[in-house]
Simulated scan of single mutants.
Amino acid sequence: MVRCGVTPSETGNVAAQDNTVSLSAVEMSSPESNEEHPCHFARISAILDDHSYLPTKFGGLVENALVYISGFVVRQILRKLTCDPCRVSLIQDATPSSFDENYHLLTLKNNGGLVIPSQGVVKVVRAAERVIRGASPNHPPKLSAVTYIVREDIGTEDVFQLGEHTQETQFGIDNHHSDLLSLVVSVFLKIRMHHIAKVTCLGLQKGNTRKKLCKTVLFQGY
């Protein structure tokens, strides 16, 4: 407090014991130093607007989990998607020839029945995961907000490799590329919200007596 310029009172309950003087932030600053070292926070609003604090890269464990979940997302979408070119764009026949290490978990778990998601689906799911992790725990992200941020992140890149099919399905501002992106984000967000709710409930019930004695209550009647 002294360094910030606060001076002790001579009549208060706590009085100074000696005349020692500490340098304050005001005394340490000077016009010359301000000119030589301009303040980096002068445009703090612009810095916050231009810079994103969302994680840009996940670890190998999270990346493998996202690829695995992406396959489940694709399976859910294929149940209600009728456009053949769009269905093909969501899946690939086999693991990438270069054997992307992010597909390692999916390869180990796959006995022939799992869906291998395309690179485009994985990229959209990864972008949505960054938005979810950057949201406040007290305010779950809304679908519209997540979709908007993912669109901004993907930009004009043809992640689903639809090519001319995007132009053929252009109606106003909507097309099958836009619809696929929204559908992937919607299904993935629903899965993540269920997981977050489950983890939150387990945390709240951690100290519950019935939770600790669950087997005793169920099997011995206590």
Rank of each mutant, 00 (worst) to 15 (best):
222 Y>L: 15
134 G>C: 11
41 F>H: 15
145 A>H: 07
10 E>W: 06
3 R>L: 14
180 L>H: 10
211 K>A: 15
10 E>F: 09
99 F>H: 11
80 K>S: 12
24 S>W: 06
2 V>I: 04
39 C>E: 03
36 E>A: 13
135 A>V: 04
188 F>S: 02
109 K>F: 09
129 E>A: 14
210 R>T: 03
204 L>C: 09
191 I>P: 00
129 E>R: 12
115 V>E: 08
105 L>A: 10
35 E>Y: 04
183 L>P: 00
76 Q>D: 15
182 S>Y: 01
107 T>E: 07
7 T>F: 08
207 G>W: 10
115 V>N: 07
114 L>V: 08
147 T>I: 05
128 A>I: 02
13 N>C: 05
67 V>S: 04
159 V>A: 14
157 E>S: 04
71 G>E: 00
58 F>A: 11
3 R>T: 06
88 V>I: 10
116 I>T: 08
27 E>D: 12
192 R>W: 05
76 Q>I: 03
176 H>R: 10
177 H>S: 13
51 H>C: 09
11 T>Y: 03
168 E>V: 08
172 G>M: 01
207 G>Q: 06
207 G>S: 05
133 R>H: 09
36 E>T: 01
72 F>L: 15
80 K>L: 04
55 P>T: 09
129 E>V: 01
133 R>L: 09
164 E>Q: 11
165 H>C: 14
214 C>P: 04
99 F>T: 13
99 F>D: 14
119 Q>M: 02
80 K>W: 08
171 F>N: 05
87 R>K: 11
98 S>Y: 12
48 L>H: 13
172 G>L: 07
38 P>S: 07
157 E>C: 10
67 V>H: 02
17 Q>N: 02
93 D>K: 15
54 L>Q: 06
71 G>L: 00
187 V>N: 05
100 D>H: 15
187 V>I: 11
169 T>D: 03
111 N>I: 06
173 I>D: 11
179 D>E: 14
57 K>S: 15
209 T>W: 07
19 N>C: 04
23 L>C: 10
182 S>N: 15
139 H>M: 13
137 P>H: 02
17 Q>S: 12
60 G>E: 14
82 T>Y: 03
26 V>N: 07
114 L>F: 01
163 G>K: 04
166 T>S: 14
31 P>W: 00
10 E>D: 06
9 S>R: 05
75 R>A: 15
100 D>K: 15
188 F>M: 07
219 F>D: 08
71 G>A: 10
71 G>W: 03
178 S>V: 12
63 E>G: 00
212 K>C: 12
123 K>G: 03
50 D>K: 12
129 E>I: 00
191 I>M: 15
191 I>R: 13
9 S>H: 08
120 G>D: 02
154 I>M: 05
197 A>G: 04
111 N>S: 12
122 V>Y: 08
119 Q>L: 08
14 V>P: 01
146 V>C: 05
158 D>R: 01
137 P>V: 09
16 A>P: 00
155 G>W: 11
40 H>A: 14
169 T>G: 11
186 S>G: 09
65 A>C: 03
